[in-house]
Every structure is written in C-alpha cells, then in structure tokens.
Nucleic acid binder design. Structure first.
Length: 510
RNA sequence: GGCCCGUUCGUCUAGGGGUUAGGACGCCAGAUUUUCAUUCUGGUAACACGGGUUCGAUUCCCGUACGGGCUACCA
C-alpha cells in the first residue's frame, strides 16, 4: 500500500551547530533516499524565533556538504515544494489550524503563563499523576470550550493573545507503528492538549512538521528517538486533518550517548574528553567561544561519515570500511539498532587511520605540504609523496606526520639520552667512522643497494646488526624511532648521511 | 512522580529456540623488525536479574533492576 515515491527530509532547527547525532540522522535519511531512488530534502525548522542563532543555518548546510551529502531540494537549491524554511511558510499553517478548529479538533486558549503555572502547581500538590492541559483540566481554563463563542470572538478581535490547542480525546487507545520499534500503544489520557499555534503567530513544531511533511509528500520520517513520545500526537493530527492515507511511515533512531557515564552526548563531553562533537568548527556568535570540529581536528570526511553510520547501524556483514555510496546501497532501517550507542573516540581514530592509509600518497602529501609551509619548509612534491607513503601507516592524522618525518628535513640537534647511554659504546665511534667510509664509497645510494652492502659488511666484520644499526639510527634521526633506516638514507642522500654521521661522532661523547 | 523506549564482551555490534555465542575497537602476549610503529598470530572478555512457555531459552512472554527519552506558547 506504500508504493509512493520515497521522499525523506532532514529537518534541523537553526538553534546552534549541528552535532554528530544530527549528522547521523541526516546520514540515515540520505542512505534511505539513495537506496530507494528517492528524494532527500532539507527543511529548516525555524519556528522558534527566540532560539534562532545567527549562522546556524549556514553551518548546518556547510557541515552536510562537507560530509558529502547532497540534497535534492533545500533552502539553497529550491524545489517543487519551496519554500523550505518554515518561517517563510507561515501563512500555510494558519489555514490548517483553522480547519482543525472548524472540525472541533482544536480550540482557542487564552490562559496566561501564570495561569498555567497555577494549574500545574495545583495538580502537583493534589498529587495528580499528570499536570497537563487535557480533557479534564481544560474545562477549568480560559478557552473557547469554556467560554461563549461571542466572548471568544470579542477577545480575539480585541487583540488578546491566544494559542490554538489540539483537542486530545479522552481515554482512547492510540496505536502507532514504528519501523524500528514496531507497534506502540498509548492511551490518550497520557497526552495533553498540545499547543499547535503560538501567540506569536507561529506554529509549533508539531503543526508545522505535519503540515510540511504532508505538503511536501514525505513518505518516511526518520528522526531521533526524542520524538517518539509525540508520535501519537502526530498520527492523530494526520487523522484529524483527514490525511490518513498520506501518513508517512516513521522510524525513530536511538540516541548517541556519552562515552562514559550517563546521558546523551553533549558539547561538554567533547570539551572534557578532547574529541569534537561537531562536524565543523563553530564559533558562538554571542560568546565568541570556539568549539572545534572533526574537520579541523584532522578527520577525513569519508572516514567520519563511515564511523558515524556504524553507530546504531550495521550491514550484518564483517565489512567495516564503506564509502558513502556503498553504505547507501547496503542500508536498511531494519538493520538499525534499537538502543543508544555510546560514542567511542578511540574507534573514531581507528577509522581515520584506516582512511588515511588508503588515501593516495600525493593527496596526503598535498595536505602535509600545507603544514610544512607553515614551518617555512618547501619540499618537492614527489619526494614528499614518497616520504608520506613510507610513513603513513604510523599515524592516525596528517597532523601527526610531522613528528614522524621531521628528521627528513633537518639533522638532529639532540640525541635521545636514553639511547645514547644504552647504545653508544666505546667502540661505536670507530664503527661509525668505518661505516662512513663504506658509505662514501657507495656509487648507488638507493635503499636496497645500501642494505645489501651494509649488511654484508656487518657480517664480514663479525658485528651484530643491533650494534651497528641502532647507533647509526641514533646519529641519523636522533633517537630510536623512524622508518626503515636504509630508506631514510636514500631519501636524505649520501652527503647528508655522511654529514650526520660525522656530527654524531663529534657530538655524542659519553 | 507519570508515560514511552531500550538492555549480547569495557565500547561498537552480528546472531538467534539446540552455536565452541561471531567480528571490530581497546587491552595483553608472541612472531617479524636495526628502533619505534605497522603487520601477522594468539589471548582476555558478553547474552542484566527472577519467573514462566518449551524436551530445550541468550533468543518468546511477564515482572524486577538498570539505562535512555519525553513530560514548554523548544525543537
């Protein structure tokens, strides 16, 4: 019965930077659309003027772009169902709230915030299980159900502030369906008369969301679990508006949780534990506080997205490295998990490593070159590619490349004390002197050639590999680290190799 | 408090009425290596608890505990 075109939307509020939970929701929507050859829509839900944050909308768009997600319809791109910003669709909502009032599914309410407070504290003190504006309490409040039609009309025309509330029926079992969780039954007595239209002339999320999903022909609503409690209301709104046949299917995604401890992932956790919670860097326009993003922390977009998708979803195979396209093809909501996932920063790093070692050397070299130029170092691109290729397995991020490669660009000025103490024996200077001589006689200074000749010499001299190679490494790189030593010699070249040995012999004195 | 959702190694997860409960991250050990790292091999470690149903339950049902969400003229 659901043969209609798949159309899904990601509908964030521009109340701040998009956090990775939101990115994941967008991702799943995108996968679902791609998998079914449908449309992926961005709708900005800016019905709350008070919480609107400057720059947030641009941030959201930029972030998703960085992740590689492209919308078929959006505020930027437009589309057949424009506008895609709720603040620009204001007029549309009014007619539907009017329709609900006419059909006796909604009513006007004039209660002030203070009056609502009074009601709630009264109910609380009476130990009522709920403190809601509902089928029972509405009879004692100021609304169009308790006042005469005339009085209501008069108040409205007098400019009295009012809201429009949904008239939740009493004691009705509402059965809704969720793709991930199955059938859920809720009694309407648990639900309240939600405000549909605010006194500022804007609809609330509930009304705007339903109206827009309906008018934009959304087929599947894939959103966070925090919306599950309002699903019955939403389904009832579809029914009340006579849109039963167009009700989308719903899937509520489990939340992303803190790495340790309790609760959902928040900005604070990232600050405290040193990992980003935002895709891109965000500067709070009010406080000027800057929060770092995955991009700025050196994560690759494709790896980031891969990591995120595997939080709460799994294709059921043992493959873990997936491109965006592959994930879209493998995606299904049935494979999505039901329970919240704790975010693991370690695994995020591992994903980045996996992506880094798969990247093209030239591409990595380009990124690394940027960092080097900040140090006023200019390295020939093909040489840098080579260095990066030999080193990339050892790092998780491009930013870690420098500490693993600095010896290529500058001779050591200091020697690791521990190594000196342990490896620099009395006979070592002589051995180094001999090696220097041997190396200076080499015609070809390529790694393989050096390796065979030097190893041969060591054998002839009856010396152990460790006795020779470790001090040699010490003079060449300054410590007990770095890649294959012969590769290092080849790259820095004969002259530099000899010079470093000489300096080492002179400098390292016990 | 009320309502709703959830619970497989420390973490992300696969699985599913009869399995040696699988993989990945992390951790540990061994191998390789001139160092460190990588890599490889191996190891550690889980079905929250209590009742049912059943020949048999980690898997199905109920309860409890725990975790999470919602409970605004916020989304």
């Amino acid at each position: 019965m659901n043969n209609r075109r798949v159309r899904v939307r990601f509908a964030p509020s521009p109340t701040g930077p998009l956090h990775i939970g939101g990115v994941r929701t967008a991702l799943f929507n995108y996968f679902f659309a791609k998998k079914h050859g449908g449309d992926f829509i961005l709708r900005i839900e800016d019905t709350d003027q008070k919480r609107y944050v400057e720059g947030a909308e641009e941030y959201i768009i930029k972030s998703l772009k960085w992740c590689g997600l492209e919308f078929d319809e959006s505020v930027e791109k437009g589309g057949d169902y424009a506008p895609y910003r709720q603040s620009e669709r204001k007029e549309i909502y009014k007619q539907y709230s009017d329709k609900l009032i006419k059909s006796d599914n909604a009513y006007y309410a004039f209660d002030t915030p203070e009056e609502l407070d009074v009601m709630r504290t009264r109910l609380q003190e009476a130990k009522s299980s709920t403190q809601q504006y509902n089928a029972i309490t509405r009879n004692e409040m100021k609304n169009s159900l308790t006042m005469s039609a005339e009085k209501v009309k008069q108040m409205i025309s007098a400019g009295e502030p009012f809201v429009i509330r949904f008239k939740m029926p009493e004691n009705e079992n509402i059965i809704v369906n969720d793709i991930i969780r199955g059938e859920i039954t809720v009694n309407s007595n648990q639900l309240d008369d939600k405000v549909l239209f605010k006194s500022d002339g804007m609809p609330t999320y509930h009304l705007a969301n339903i109206v827009d999903d309906y008018s934009m022909k959304i087929s599947h609503v894939i959103r966070g679990e925090e919306w599950l409690p309002s699903l019955p209301l939403h389904v009832m709104l579809y029914n009340a508006l006579g849109w039963n046949n167009a009700t989308p299917q719903f899937a509520h995604l489990p939340l992303l949780l803190k790495p340790n401890g309790k609760g959902k992932l928040s900005k604070r956790d990232g600050d405290k534990m040193g990992f980003p919670v935002f895709p891109l860097e965000w500067k709070d326009p009010k406080t000027n506080e800057v929060s770092t993003g995955y991009k700025e922390s050196g994560y690759f977009a494709d790896g980031f997205v891969n990591m995120l998708a595997f939080l709460g979803w799994n294709p059921g195979t043992e493959q873990e490295i997936f491109s965006l396209e592959e994930m879209a093809q493998a995606f299904s909501l049935e494979k999505a998990g039901k329970s919240g996932s704790k975010f693991d920063p370690e695994k995020a790093k591992w994903f980045n490593h996996q992506y880094l070692i798969r990247k093209d050397n030239a591409e990595l070299a380009k990124l690394f070159a940027k960092e080097l130029s900040e140090k006023e170092l200019n390295v020939e691109p093909s040489l840098l590619s080579k260095i990066v290729g030999l080193t990339k397995e050892r790092v998780n991020f491009v930013s870690e490349l420098w500490e693993q490669t600095s010896y290529f660009f500058a001779a050591p000025v200091e020697y690791e004390a521990k190594m000196v103490k342990k490896q620099w024996k009395e006979a070592t200077p002589d051995i180094m002197q001999n090696i220097k001589k041997l190396l200076s006689q080499q015609e070809s200074f390529d790694s393989a050639n050096l390796e065979t000749n030097l190893k041969k010499w060591i054998k002839e001299q009856g010396l152990g590999m460790g006795k020779v190679m470790t001090p040699l490494r010490l003079v060449l790189v300054g410590g007990g680290f770095g890649i294959h030593l012969f590769d290092i010699m080849e790259i820095i070249g004969k002259e530099e190799t000899l010079r470093r040995i000489e300096t080492g012999i002179e400098t390292i004195k016990k």
